[in-house]
Design a protein around this nucleic acid. Structure first.
Lengths: 101, 101
DNA sequence: GACATATTTGCACAAATAAGCAAATATTAG
DNA sequence: CTAATATTTGCTTATTTGTGCAAATATGTC
């Protein structure tokens, strides 16, 4: 299923330490943050943060909004959480095959 | 946090198409399955499936049980689902900062 | 023992990935 | 226009990763 492929890409995007750190950072932000602020949390070059954020945006994990010369990133909370929960449900889910009873 | 690193490794393990396919396959299995059976679902060489399953085992995603000349793999449902839900909660969670109210 | 089956390991290779730096681009401020 | 700030892009480099094949290992069967 192509759904599997899409989910795999989302998980891969989250499955890198610095990107996951960025996501955690965005987690704790009330509003959108710019890349300068974000790249501090994982102490990498600005260009690296930029690329990671782009990768996260490509998987719809973050949303980008331009304001002047800076870009503001917002975590796509609902979407990401929903994807993760859907997988969790599928894995431990009370899915049809409860043959034990 | 080293927890972030561990979670990143788990997500990375899940974030590869063939490995995720194996997980899905194991999802639908009642009991443990051997690698021969599993490697069919992603049409790769047995050695590749073996390596992927090993990678999954290293992140505690699957459990291995030896039976004779074959190895039986069981999905670690509770653990994986819990990890995914914990992240989901952190992301969209009703975490402390509900300043909107 | 010989042989079949299941899995792992060693090797090679191609492709992807993460990283930093310097240069380019965009935008704002003076 | 010039200078400063924020971000992206091009380049290079080192490392990791996924893959297949063949050989090795382990175990069961005859």
């Amino acid at each position: 299923m192509s759904n599997t492929e899409e989910l795999a890409r989302l998980l891969k995007a989250l499955g890198e330490f610095n990107r996951l750190s960025l996501v955690y950072e965005l987690c704790q932000c009330e509003g959108p943050e710019n890349a300068m602020c974000l790249c501090e949390c994982c102490s990498v070059d600005a260009s690296v943060a930029s690329r990671h954020l782009k990768a996260l945006a490509q998987e719809n994990i973050v949303q980008i909004e331009s304001r002047g010369r800076e870009r503001l990133y917002t975590l796509n909370r609902k979407h990401v959480a929903a994807q993760l929960r859907a997988l969790a449900d599928e894995i431990d889910g009370e899915h049809e095959s409860q043959k034990i009873a």
